[in-house]
Amino acid sequence: MKIAIASGKGGTGKTTIALNLASVLASSAIRTTYVDCDVEEPNGHIFLNPEIEKSKNVAIPVPLIDFTKCTLCGKCSEICEFNAIAVTPKTVVVFKDMCHGCGGCFHVCPVNAISEIDNIIGIIEIGKSGDINFMQGKLDIGKAFSPPIIRELKRNIPSDDVTILDSPPGTSCPVIEAISDSDYIILITEPTPFGVNDLKLSVEMVRQLEIPFGILINRSDIGDDEVIRYCKKEQLDIILQIPDDREIAVAYSHGKLAVDEIPKYIDDFKNLFEKIHKAVQD
């Protein structure tokens, strides 16, 4: 079973919730994999201190021009949606870091002057932290787009585990890539105008994916009750509310998990998993 943790807004507590859930599951003798899909800024490792056992480069195919064949016809440049190839009357210039690896240019070249070479954009790492199987992706600095790394992470997920996918924030391509074939999505929000605004965007996104989902309200006792009103109006399932607890913040500031430091939260996460399990089976 794959459970994705997402939110429109950054800083709502995706990683905190994902790790607490993973930790409670692993302690309950459930085989659990935590996957940090926020490959632009993965930080789950700070809490888990995993031992990395395997790592693998992730590359995308970018064009290499054979100037002995190229006629400067410009077809490769025309088809490129990302302006990664410029063709002028004198030469062809490839910007490999703008290339998304779609392969369009290879196909349209009428004289087969384009071959594919690998452009490494990042890495995936697989390891262990206690009972939790750990995976993360890292996008290299200066590289423009992350979905191929997330795709590679997902290819390596152990099939029998309960997998917790820690998504990047927002509603764009990397998020869709991270959450799109999960069995359940937890949308995290907070009761502030920013939280509500971004929750609405996330709900629109998840409804299009047609995956069962529930709302987790973090720091539920701050702000106003607009989130609750919105959830009622849209008939959304609020699966857990976590208060703005100073003890959680203290644990967090030491790189520790709430469920390890404050036992009363263990049951909350167990119940959360039960609810999700039931929702997935229905």
Binding site: S77, F82, N83, A84, A86, V87, T88, P89, K90, V93, F95, M98
Partner: peptide
């Protein structure tokens, strides 16, 4: 109004004017 690679596109355009 293009979102990315505007400099590249503009350079290609004027380079085509010899």
């Amino acid at each position: 109004s293009a979102s990315q690679g505007v400099g590249i596109q503009s350079a290609q355009l004027i380079a085509g004017k010899n």
